[in-house]
Structures are given as structure tokens and as C-alpha cells.
Amino acid sequence: MNLFLSKEDLIRWLDALLRQRVLVAPVRVQGLILLQPVSKVAEVTLDFGNTTLSPKGWFLPPMETLFSVQSNDGQQKLVPTTIEKDAVIFGLRPCDARGIALIDRPLLREPSDALYRERRARTSLIGLSCRQAQPECFCTSMGSAPNDPSHVDILLTEIDNGYILQVITEKGRALLSESFAEYKGTLPKPPEPGAVPTKEVVPAVKKLFDDPYWERLADRCLHCNICAYVCPTCYCFDVRDYSDKGSVERIRGWDSCQSPGFSRIAGGYNPRVTKGARLRQRFAHKLLYFPERFKDVACVGCGRCVRSCPVNIDIREVLRDLQQLEVKSGS
């Protein structure tokens, strides 16, 4: 059964949620849309394409302390990081929800990542269907859709006078404290994002692994970490121990295969020394290694890397190029 919320209902409901949990929602900061904890509903923006950074940062923060060891009078005590409160993410786009479901596969596979698992279990997801596709969006080519309810607990769809609310999971039902009216109408037609060819992409990457294409594509790559850090499915991190005044902290922070030191190992050897090998790693992880191990291509078509890349390395174009090159090389 679908429910109907007026705009006032929505504000009242979010306010009620805010009183019990951490409410993470899109906020306009300068020209950006950032997903962050809010202290009042008025901070939340409902008018946005998608958030500048993906929601993965809530589950896999840019930086977190995994645990610390404190030393007192010759006694060492291990202090684990604890998650204080339950949270709810509001305004999540369906493509990003799929992104979370995809990184669940490596991170929740046993032995699972304890902090990720706990945050995931204690966070509910309220999705918001897209009314408009951005020019860089291609979610329907990547197994999602602007109104895909698959990976959220509740899905809201905006209509002219309010929102249609679909309860997807039991976790979602638990978020409803008051009863809303039933919505008897039909759901609006979703927008149609651009299409990208994805047929046989996995064998294409495998076959073209040593193709000079990668080196040429990498000529203009700056090897910054933007694509990896804005991506909802890039989950690489680095771990270091730092000591300070009798305590030691184990820190985890985002890392990216594009950074020159990423694959450097003890003794200074770097197996991915060329620009082409580094850039290929990004695409090979998404389009070859991930699907081989976890079934699906690790891209949800959110378009963030396309939007943010300073030199226009466009994954849609890479997918097209790979297919064309494979046809040319004769399969």
C-alpha cells in the first residue's frame, strides 16, 4: 500500500525522526549539496540533482579511528570505536542506494568489516526518486532506475502536492510513527537518463587489458583522487597507526588507485608504474574484477566522476570505446 504525505507531513515526520536519531540529509553549502547530519529540518534541501559526494562516506568515512590503545601506569587498554546512535539517511538517490548494496558485497562478506557492518545495521535509508535525470546520469544502463526501490527501506516520490511513500522493508516500517493517508493514484513516470552500452563489457576489458588504449587515455589523466572519492562504489582505504602522548590510534582513511604511491610496496617496487596501468586499474576493478567476484559491474551510473573529472575522463565514453575496440579486434 502506498501512502501520501503532504509537504507539511514530510517536515513533521523528519522532525520526529530527528528527535530519535541522527538525521543525515542533503544540505546546500555554497554551491554544493553535501550529505551531513542536521540539527533542524530547515537545513535540509529538497531541491537538488544529486549530492556532490556519494553517501558511502557515512558508512566508510573519509577518516575514522578503528580503535585506540591507551597506556596508563604500565597497563595497556584497547578502546574500540563505538557507534553511539541509530541514524537515518534521508534523500538518498536510488543509484546511490545501489552503490551501498554493491559495496556491501566485499565489506559484509565474512570476515566482515565490523564498523561498516554496525553502521549499516544501525542506519535506515529513505530514498528519494529522481524527478529529473542530470545530463551525466546513466543509472538505467547500470541496473538501477530513477525510481528503483530495491535498496532502500522507504522510497519517496515527489508529486505536485506532496510525496508518495512506499514502505519497502520492515526497517522502513519502523520509521513510521504516525499513520498517513493511503495514496490510491498511480506512480509518476520516471525520467529517462541517457543510455550507455554495457553488453559484454567484462570480456572486453579482459581482452583489451594490454591494449595501448589505456596509455593514451591516461595521457590527460592528472591522477588525482577525485573520481575515486566521489564514487559510491570505490571502497579502497589505507590503515596507519599513529602514536601521541601515550596512546596509539589505528586510523583508516580513503585511498585511491590513481595516486602514484597506492601500489608501492616495501623496498620501493611499484607494480603499476605507468599512468596507463594506474588508470586501467580503476576501470578494470569496476568492469572486470568486481563482476568476476561479486557478479555485477561496480558502477551505478550516478555520473559523479563524469561531472567532477577536471580533464573529462568519461566512463560512458570508455564503455563505448571498449566495445568498439573489441569489435575492431574481431572476437
Binding site: 553549502v29 554544493l32 553535501l34 588525482c224 583522487n225 577525485i226 585511491s256
Partner: peptide, 12 residues
């Protein structure tokens, strides 16, 4: 506070 240390500023 918003910096994500992507180093794009340095790389460019």
C-alpha cells in the same frame, strides 16, 4: 573542513 584530500589541486 570540506577538503577530502583528493590532491587534484596538486596534480593539476
Amino acid at each position: 573542513g570540506r577538503c577530502i584530500r583528493c590532491y587534484a589541486c596538486r596534480q593539476v
